[in-house]
Design a protein around this nucleic acid. Structure first.
Length: 857
RNA sequence: GCCCGAGUGGCGGAAUCGGUAGACGCUGUGGACUUAAAAUCCAUUUCCAGCAAUGGAGUGAGGGUUCAAGUCCCUCCUCGGGCACCA
């Protein structure tokens, strides 16, 4: 524990300046401004009950340093904060205690806000947003309805993770190793009615858009892999004795001659046609067994291949050979056509299967260099065609196009593209989320709506969205934007319905409504049916949106948080655009960042937004570990609470140390001793800057001090621009150490140092700035400029090497000639000792740096 | 298994253009100030040999390119992250 030195009263200073910034609205972002804008965005937090932990501020401090620096550089800066406040924990708590999730959420937000404010960020708090606020989520709903209108939302039965203990459906990311992330209960697959967004329609755009983004390579790579575009061919195989054809997708049409068997997924629609009567029982048993397996069994555990021969054969379109058709669960129904041609010689999985079931393996690609060792089967590398009749000897890669065009000419196939990306299951069977603003009506009423005179007609998708419920087909109608927000009803019991439906399905007077097909207005069925034939019976959609929904567009709402006419004023969006800097954890590399790009691109295509991509520059801060080098967790007991740190050392020390810890992107352990170190540095700055007896009026007269100051200005500026804050802080430490050792220095020198320090330790900087006669806020004073000409010294140090080893050094005037430097080097006694009896074979002179003499003998 | 990223003192890390390895901070040791402590300051702190001057080794391991390699190339090891039957 550091004791509070009498001089540096950080608590008093920090409270004083936080109040000042708040009262003066120092960090208000101006919507109408001639300055260039700079928008620094943090991934907004989920306000959990546990409060802020030491990892949260790391990214916030980084973006805050940039924000303050850019402000000093003359930009109009926007640095906002808000709350991603829908989500499971508040709902789980409600189930346990009966406390309304909005109460829990509000209390958590208040605590988070208090903690974040205590760190002293340059945030424009007038723009605070909250995804659970109906004024916010009405626009989340509005965007959903746009997607619906454009046919990008549909309803389908989808296999989802169902947790019997939580009696809730979980998202993929909430399931870890077959257990629920919350509570660690087992989960299973269940087919449930889901609202789905057609993100696959944007697969190509999302892929292509990555090229122009300044993002970490690994994140781009992850998104690319997730989208998973592959190029190949769809090939039709004649089934012997049947009218139907079996279509497969392959990326290796060049290996078609090596197809020795085919596989269909257990769920393939043609299975009943393929299976011969004597195999029927065996195949049925296999399919049933496969259906019972969870995804986990089918993938992780069951690397061991299984399958059954159907009894049917296909004909190879290029050589007419009979190929047996198997059913095996290593082929996925959800990818490609759900069927493959198996080429065991050139595919590891097919090879394993063929070996197990003694199916022939036919090589059709050989290495051009004939290297037998490297061409061992299964071989998937490049090569030349063999055993492929007229194609023999051709380069396999070139042959792909040849075979595709031959198949095309025969009407037996075509080039095709496939994606791993699946549509986005957008519904959650929960209470604490944005209600999906759809209602369900009969076909008859739907057709009436299509021809009615009201506003609803124009909001319908080209193809109706339908859902099978209790044996009848229902049709989806949207709420018009005038009816938004569709608020969550108050309920007594937050337990899920237990049937896989949301708790909302049990709130009859909210669920069952009278709906006006013209105006889209609705009232509860507990009320009498209003007059007029356009009022019909309808039920509300009971699913709510996933937590991702609110974070898909929050970066836009900060630009115009109080707009009640639209999600964001186009003029404001045109001015602010997207964040110039976006920082958050790498765990969001795929889902949040992909979903947000999807919505943003969609809104751009709709003409709502001027810019296609939301996040031009992205950065992931690294994890901060506990002092023991383990991930911070309550159970290990190594969690560091920022409140405690601020109490002991102050917010400035916390900020500075989080940045001094190491590279921003690195995973690095916390250290109590370390924060004492930076705290000492701040105390030293405080002491020096108030030691007025050492301060001189006017310009800095000490040459060395002046040079070091400008070197520091340069390095700190570059360090901020390059997000290498640890290096910048080191340089400021070097400068203060120098000033402390100096007899005296100019007050201006101290003032420049204070300005450099201001983005890092803003409270102390404001205080010292004021004490040295500056007018607050220091944040509004122009960033110091490095005078590079001062960095060129009159004297240069040249080091002398013999065979690359350091043997001496000497000072030279800046303009010294190469020859005289070489002569001095050779005359140096230490160098001489290593030249003794040897022959100089080469003399290297690197101007201004070194001499290297290569000798032998 | 595949694809990335990273390995530098006792510790966190600098050295991002191939050109003085270990900046800065922490820790440790010795000292100054003090009645004493705290605070502050000074010296020292990669390893080995030596009283010292100095010499030798050294950036995960091995090899290579170069006058010169932490930095570039090849092989391997360890750790971290991502993907994982996507045909």
């Amino acid at each position: 524990m550091a004791l509070k030195e009498q001089g540096y009263m950080f608590s008093t200073i920090e409270r004083k300046w936080q109040e000042f910034w708040e009262n003066e609205k120092t960090f208000r972002a101006d919507d109408e401004c001639a300055k260039t804008k700079y928008y620094a965005l943090d991934m907004f937090p989920y306000p959990s009950g546990a409060g802020l932990h030491i990892g949260h501020p790391e990214g916030y401090v980084a973006s805050d340093i940039l924000a303050r620096y850019k402000k000093a550089c003359g930009f109009n800066v926007l640095h906002p904060m808000g709350w991603d406040a829908f989500g499971l924990p508040a709902e789980q708590y409600a189930i346990k205690t009966g406390t309304h999730p909005s109460e829990t959420t509000q209390a958590n937000i208040d605590n988070f806000r208090r903690q974040i404010k205590s760190i002293g960020f340059a945030i424009d708090w007038d723009r605070e947003i909250n995804t659970t606020d109906p004024h916010y989520y009405q626009w989340t709903q509005w965007i959903f309805l746009k997607l619906f209108q454009r046919g990008l939302a549909y309803v389908d039965k989808k296999p989802v993770w169902w947790c019997p203990n939580l009696r809730a459906v979980l998202a993929n990311e909430e399931v870890v190793d077959g257990m629920s992330e919350v509570g660690g209960h087992p989960v299973e697959r269940k087919n449930l009615r889901q609202v789905v967004l057609k993100i696959t329609a944007y697969a190509d755009k999302l892929l292509a858009g990555l090229d122009n983004l300044d993002w970490p390579d690994s994140t781009k790579r992850q998104q690319k892999a997730w989208i998973g575009r592959s190029k190949g061919a769809e090939i039709q195989f004649v089934i012997v004795g049947k009218d139907e054809k079996l279509e497969v997708y392959t990326t290796r049409p060049d290996t078609l001659f090596g197809a020795t068997y085919m596989v269909v997924a257990p769920e393939h629609p043609l299975i009943s046609k393929l299976v011969v009567s004597e195999k029927a029982d065996e195949v049925k048993a296999y399919i049933d067994a496969a259906a019972k397996k969870s995804d986990l069994d089918r993938t992780d555990l069951a690397k061991d291949k299984s399958g059954v021969f159907t009894g049917s054969y296909c004909l190879n379109p290029v050589n007419g050979e009979k190929i047996p058709v198997w059913v095996a669960d290593y082929v996925l129904i959800s990818y490609g056509t759900g069927a493959i041609m198996a080429v065991p010689a050139h595919d590891e999985r097919d090879f394993e299967f063929a070996e197990k079931f003694s199916i022939p393996i036919q090589r059709v690609i050989a290495r051009a260099d004939g290297d037998e060792e490297k061409a061992k089967l299964p071989y998937s590398g490049p090569g030349v065609m063999v055993n492929s009749s007229e194609y023999d000897g051709m380069d396999a890669e070139l042959c792909k196009a040849e075979i595709i065009s031959k198949l095309e000419s025969q009407g037996q196939g075509k080039g095709a593209v496939n994606y791993k990306l699946r549509d986005w299951i957008f519904s959650r069977q929960r209470y604490w989320g944005e209600p999906i603003p759809l209602v369900w009506v009969s076909l008859e009423d739907f057709e009436k709506a299509q021809v009615s005179e009201g506003i609803l007609r124009n909001l319908l998708p080209t193809n109706p969205v339908t859902s099978e419920q209790d044996g009848s087909t229902l049709y989806a109608l949207p709420l018009p934007s005038s009816e938004l927000p569709l608020k969550l009803p108050e309920i007594e019991n937050y337990q899920p319905a237990g049937t896989g439906e949301s708790p909302l399905a049990t709130i009859t007077d909210w669920l069952e409504i009278w709906f006006d097909l013209e105006s889209g207005k609705s009232i509860s069925r507990t009320e009498p049916k209003p007059a007029g034939e356009n009022w019909v019976y309808a039920t509300r959609e009971t699913n709510t949106m996933p937590q991702w929904a609110g974070s898909c567009w929050y970066h836009l709402r900060y630009l115009d948080p109080k707009n009640s006419e639209s999600p964001v004023d186009p003029k404001k969006e045109a001015y602010w655009g997207g964040p110039d800097f976006y920082i958050g954890g790498a765990e969001h590399a795929v889902l949040h960042l992909l979903y947000a790009r999807f919505w943003h691109r969609f809104l751009h295509d709709e003409g709502v937004l001027a810019h296609p991509e939301p996040y031009k520059k992205l950065f992931h801060q690294g994890l901060i570990l506990g002092e023991d080098g383990n991930k911070m967790s309550k159970s290990v007991g190594n969690v560091v609470n920022p409140d405690v740190v601020i109490d002991a050392y102050g917010a400035d020390s916390l900020r500075l140390f989080e940045m001094f810890l190491g590279p921003l992107e690195a995973v690095k352990p916390w250290s109590e001793k370390g924060i004492e170190g930076v705290h000492r540095f701040l105390r030293k700055v405080h002491r020096e800057c108030l030691l007025v007896s050492k301060h001189q009026d006017g310009e800095e007269t000490n040459k060395e001090t002046l040079r070091l100051l400008h070197e520091t200005i340069l390095k700190v500026t570059e360090a901020i621009e390059d997000l290498r804050f640890n290096v910048g802080i080191s340089q400021m430490m070097i400068l203060i150490n120098h000033l402390q050792k100096s007899e005296s220095y100019a007050r201006e020198t101290a003032r420049s140092l204070i300005q450099l320090l201001a983005p890092f330790a803003p409270h102390l900087a404001e205080e010292l700035w004021e004490q040295l006669g500056g007018k607050p806020s220091v944040a509004n004073h122009p960033w110091p400029q490095a005078r590079k000409e001062l960095l060129v010294s009159e004297e240069i140090t040249i080091v002398f090497q013999v065979n690359g080893k350091l043997r001496g050094q000497a000072q030279f005037p800046r303009n010294a000639e190469k020859d005289s430097i070489l002569a001095t080097a050779k005359a140096d006694p230490k160098v001489q000792a290593f030249l003794e009896g040897k022959e100089i074979v080469k003399e290297i002179y690197v101007p201004g740096k070194l001499v290297n003499l290569a000798v032998k003998g």
